[in-house]
Design a protein around this nucleic acid. Structure first.
Length: 687
DNA sequence: AATATCCGTATTTTT
DNA sequence: TACGGATATT
């Protein structure tokens, strides 16, 4: 496409956003208004105008989004710019920038990055040391500690205020919590370890201080931010710091789609943009190109009930189309049946599976459906709610790699040492001391070297075999030089598994599946030559879908997308199914505490509905079984989601999925009738 | 001090 | 389900 050609694809508002010259720009872009396309065009336009790609910074919500946008922009300019433009999440970009410029803050360029569970583990370690774990009063759990810390840092709020507002039941433990947080901060500093929040914090510090800001701020002529409604106070501060250098800051977002307040994101960033960045131009994109009129009408009705929002009304040219369908089914099993049936029906009528998606509130809402899809041999890929990185054995493997990368990484050592037979928290702690893990800065040999030397007295005799295998494995990874140019990360994982596989088989259930996970980890690593890079990118951009984990051969196939609503942000599909539209599921009953969180759940529903182009199905199971696999039929009846009130429902077609009419009869039938028929036919035609 | 065993439970969303 | 926490045993 030539420039005049793609320029003509833009409507006047989009064109204004694309060609906007210098100075701050806020684009308020409703769902489906071509926001991604507009951003891509703006990048292309800047490059065409002579801005050097490496002087553009494009901040997106996921790495995937950055890749996609830069791919498009590259095609528009006819040049490969993806590798030159700075693109990625705030966290990933911080990671890169801090390795280049962190020295002025006393940061080693070889820092390692901790994820949220590492944070919790380190807090736990410190809690034990401070003797706060053995007391009569209950103390916040480690995950809660991490959450409190993160909220305070990201929202820029005082600990006591955070406790009062969001964690009132922890109020009495403020002193202990504070002590842990102080030690936590020191510990990270000593060990050159940063958590997610530190990445933003240090970046902010870097650009806020006149003495250090220069080299960072001068790197960029243009900064573009996507999904601005889901950024937090610290990210806004960073942007302001960058703005001091470039003046050319463009943000795109939609307050009606703000769904990340649990991560301290605040729509105030969007609402207050014009005050914070004086002279800002505001452009509104209101023409929806995605959805048919009936789908848009239903979506608009849902969000119209929201309390506070930017005034804008989405409209569309896409006439025709049928109303969205609200399908009431007996239970989850029937819901799964119905979804499968509809997926196949649409495929028969010409919509490939990959143009269809099933969306839900939480990761495990799709469990039963996944079983059903597998049973019917319908391929799918699932986004969101993956626990791969949290699995104990995967973390064990990563801890080993991290020790090699940073021999003073205390949490990783603590974890690894406890893998040895007969070693628990107490002995591991003693060994940490003996190995000098906390003796940073001293000239003594590093802990890895010490481990290779004399056997520490703290090691119990039964650990001898494990210890020897551990030493050998670590030494094998260090041989032939270390780091870049040394042993490839995937090979290191292989060598480490000589120690780890037996441990996994001894300690964990379902060892076979877990060993397979380690193989997959090796597979992920094979794309990297540098261990540090592999570790950082894996924590900052963990596998987002089951497709990321499966090998390439699967990707050619046609597959349905299953996704949490959060992970579906920015996506669109011809046919969308929303399942579990019941109160308690959406809104989640974990989120019905106060008005604000309920409002966020409403926006979540809005995001889900607006993903649909041509057809939209909302499924509502009437009955839930309390015990997923219990033989008693303890069950409860659900209410339709409170957001689908009378007036909203008026914009839907409503239908009850046919099954046995009497609920009792359905319960005794066990399998729904359609499943029986399917099973019969599968018996005839299956292999 | 570690581990085996058992019991209850709670269980989002993601960088 | 699987995990965390408490208790009992080695």
């Amino acid at each position: 496409m030539t420039q005049t050609e793609w320029m003509q694809t833009l409507n006047p508002a989009q064109r204004e956003a694309v060609t906007h010259g210098d100075g701050p720009l806020l684009v308020v872009a409703g769902a489906g208004t071509g926001k991604t396309w507009t951003l891509a065009c703006r990048v292309a336009h800047l490059v065409d105008r002579g801005v050097r790609p490496e002087r553009i910074l494009l901040l997106t919500f996921t790495r995937r989004a950055a890749r996609e946008m830069l791919g498009r922009a590259g095609r528009l300019t006819g040049r490969e710019i993806g590798g030159r433009v700075w693109g990625g999440t705030f966290h990933a970009v911080a990671n890169r920038l801090l390795r280049l410029h962190g020295r002025s803050l006393g940061l080693s360029p070889h820092f390692t990055v901790m994820d949220q569970t590492d944070t919790a583990d380190l807090m736990n370690l410190i809690r034990g040391e401070l003797g706060l774990d053995a007391r009569d009063r209950r103390f916040p759990r480690k995950e809660t500690l991490a959450a409190i810390h993160s909220r305070a840092v990201n929202a820029g709020a005082k600990l006591i205020d955070v406790l009062k507002r969001d964690f009132p039941w922890c109020n009495e433990e403020a002193d202990g919590i504070r002590a842990i947080f102080v030690a936590y901060g020191q510990r990270k500093r000593e060990q050159h370890v940063l958590d997610y929040d530190d990445l933003l914090l240090y970046w902010k510090a870097l650009v806020a201080d006149r003495a250090t800001a220069g080299p960072v701020v001068r790197r960029f002529d243009h900064v573009l931010v996507d999904e601005y409604q889901d950024t937090n106070a610290m990210q806004a501060d960073i942007l302001e710091g960058l703005h001091a250098g470039t003046r050319n800051v463009a943000v795109v977002g939609d307050d009606a789609q703000a769904i990340y307040s649990f991560r301290s994101a605040t729509v105030r960033n969007i609402l207050e943009f014009p005050e914070r960045f004086p002279g800002a131009t505001v452009v509104r994109l209101e023409q929806n190109y995605r959805s048919t009129r009936p789908i848009l009408a239903a979506s608009n009705a849902v969000i119209a009930r929201a309390a506070r929002r930017h005034e804008k009304t989405l409209w569309t040219d896409r006439h025709g189309g049928t109303r969205p369908l609200l399908l009431t089914c007996l239970d989850e099993a029937e819901q799964s049946d119905e979804v499968c049936r509809l997926l196949l029906e649409h495929r028969e009528r010409g919509t490939p599976l990959r143009r269809q998606a099933v969306l839900f509130r939480t990761g495990h809402h799709s469990d039963l459906l996944e079983v059903e899809l597998a049973r019917r041999n319908i391929p799918f890929v699932k986004y969101g709610g993956l626990k791969f990185m949290e699995a104990a054995h995967v973390k064990d493997a990563l801890a080993l790699l991290r020790i090699l990368e940073n021999p003073f990484d205390e949490v990783s050592w603590f974890r690894v040492l406890q893998l040895l037979e007969g070693v628990g928290p107490a002995r591991a702690r003693a060994m940490l001391g003996a190995l000098g893990v906390r003796a940073t800065g001293s000239r003594s040999p590093d802990p890895l070297t010490r481990l290779g030397g004399d056997a520490p007295r703290e090691v119990p005799p039964e650990a001898a075999g494990d210890l020897q295998r551990l030493r050998d494995a670590l030494a094998d990874c260090r041989r032939d030089g270390d780091g870049a140019g040394g042993v490839a990360p995937a090979v290191q994982i292989d060598r480490l598994r000589r120690f780890l596989d037996p441990v996994v088989e001894r300690r964990y259930e379902s060892a076979v599946a877990r060993v397979r996970d380690l193989e997959q980890l090796g597979h992920l690593a094979s794309a990297y030559t540098d261990r540090g890079r592999f570790l950082a990118e894996l924590t900052l951009d963990p596998p987002a879908s089951t497709g990321d984990l499966a090998g390439p051969p699967l990707l050619d196939e046609d597959y349905v997308v299953l996704s949490t609503i959060h992970s579906a942000k920015g996506g669109e599909w011809d046919v969308v199914h929303l399942i579990h539209a019941a109160d308690g599921m959406l809104p989640s009953d974990m989120a019905t505490g106060d008005v604000e969180t309920v409002e966020e759940e409403r926006r979540l529903l809005y995001v889900a509905l607006t993903r649909a182009r041509d057809a939209l199905y909302v499924h509502f199971p009437l009955r839930y079984y309390r015990r997923p696999r219990g033989h008693d039929d303890a069950h409860s009846y659900a209410q339709l989601s409170r957001f689908l009130d009378r007036e909203v429902r008026a914009l839907f077609e409503e239908r009850t999925v046919s099954g046995p009419q009497d609920p009792e009869e359905a319960a005794t039938a066990g399998m729904g009738t359609p499943a029986l028929v399917d099973a019969y036919l599968a018996g005839l035609f299956g292999d």
